[in-house]
């Protein structure tokens, strides 16, 4: 019930944030209206980082505490993170064409490392489908999730470490955090969009986790069913042997 209320609040917040981003804030002086894409683009990218961070932490907790609920959290983070990464890439392309003049540049480090991030976590989700045993699956996924997480800081700092087309951080860097290179209306709109998307993220994480638990319970039920069938067959065989004797 509480989750449902969260869902309604998140919906209202996301719709409001979109209205503010599209119609209320002024466009950027140099980039024009295309700059409005920055709000969902950056919010999506930050939530993708958060999602994959949750996947890494969930994986570590599974390896440490051997509780499959942590693996369910890790799976939820990966699936939702893939969605937000795709949103960040799509928004970036739609922003890049009118402002840079190109949709995509493979040689740009930020773009390439983000594409790698998407590929890594799509791989993570595919890998999970290849393993049937829940505990083996959780362990393999935890390892892949940890290795893939190396790319998160690489994506974020790629704009500082290497020369590229993508601009550096306006807010999320040590020098910029307290002195963002944008007017407060832009920063406020970005923060509002981030808050709205975070509510939607939380709602989706809770629902995806519930689904993961339901699927685990079903797998466990199926396993018990097979176990009972084998036991019954064994008992049947035993009684036939006894009858024959």
């Amino acid at each position: 019930m509480k989750t449902r209320i969260l869902g309604f609040v998140a919906l209202a917040a996301v719709v409001s944030a979109a209205i503010v981003g599209l119609f209320v804030v002024p466009p950027d002086l140099n980039q024009g209206d295309a700059q409005r894409i920055m709000y969902p683009h950056v919010a999506s990218a930050w939530l993708a980082y958060l999602s994959f961070g949750v996947t890494a932490v969930g994986g570590v907790l599974w390896l440490w505490r051997r509780d499959l609920r942590f693996d369910a959290v890790a799976l939820s983070g990966a699936e939702i993170g893939v969605m937000f990464t795709a949103f960040a890439i799509w928004g970036g392309m739609m922003w890049g064409r009118p402002v840079w003049g190109v949709f995509w540049q493979w040689e740009d480090p930020r773009l390439t490392t983000t594409a790698l991030l998407l590929a890594l976590y799509v791989g993570y989700l595919l890998l999970r489908r290849l393993t049937e045993d829940p505990e083996r699956r959780a362990t393999r996924a935890a390892i892949v999730g940890l290795v893939a997480a190396i790319d998160i800081p690489i994506v974020h700092f790629s704009v500082e470490w290497w020369r590229g087309l993508h601009q550096t951080a306006t807010i999320a860097s040590p020098e910029r955090a307290l002195d963002p290179a944008a007017p407060m209306v832009f920063v406020g709109t970005l923060m509002g969009t981030l808050a709205a998307f975070s509510l939607a993220w939380l709602y989706l994480m809770i629902r995806r986790y519930e689904l993961a638990r339901a699927e685990l319970a079903r797998e466990e039920e199926a396993r018990r069913g097979r176990l009972r069938a084998v036991q019954a067959a064994a008992a049947n065989l035993r009684s036939q042997e006894e009858a024959a004797r």
Binding site: L22, I37, S44, F87, G91, W95
Partner: peptide, 13 residues
């Protein structure tokens, strides 16, 4: 481009 970006992101959500 703005409509395409917002449309796909909000529609995708």
């Amino acid at each position: 481009f703005v409509i395409a970006a917002y449309g796909v992101i909000l529609g995708g959500l």
